[in-house]
């Protein structure tokens, strides 16, 4: 756990505790938001690390004067397919929680 995540976790614990003035509904909302922020910052940091590593790979390729091979692209193509499977599952999950649109059958037109 890095310093920012540790600090955020500590803050979340602090405002959850009624002794420190936390525990109100508003503080609970802050806890929820902080937890989301921790998750997003972790995601951002992982992305930065992955991009840094990849940038170094590209830099080495440029320094050596090599062009990428089709295998380099295939590697990422496979990774994209795997990631999009997870995204598709998430999409189905989120859609299943959306309220159903009003059905005409439930509100038939009234005969006059």
């Amino acid at each position: 756990m890095d310093a920012i995540t540790l600090a955020l976790t500590a803050l979340a614990t602090l405002i959850r505790n009624p002794i420190t003035g936390g525990g109100s509904i508003r503080a609970e909302e802050n806890v929820r938001l902080l937890q989301h922020l921790i998750q997003l910052i972790q995601g951002g940091r992982k992305t930065a690390e992955a991009l840094k590593e990849f940038a170094e790979r590209i830099e080495a390729m440029a320094a050596a004067g090599h062009n990428p091979s089709p295998r380099d692209f295939t590697e990422f193509e496979d990774r994209l397919t795997a990631a999009m499977t997870v995204v598709a599952e998430a999409k189905a999950r989120v859609r299943s929680r959306e309220p159903a649109p009003p059905s005409d059958d439930l509100n038939p037109p009234m005969d006059q």
Binding site: K46, T47, A50, F54, R79, L80, A83, M84, A90
Partner: peptide, 8 residues
Amino acid sequence: VIGVEQIA
């Protein structure tokens, strides 16, 4: 791809 992986 790295961005999509992190979103996943």
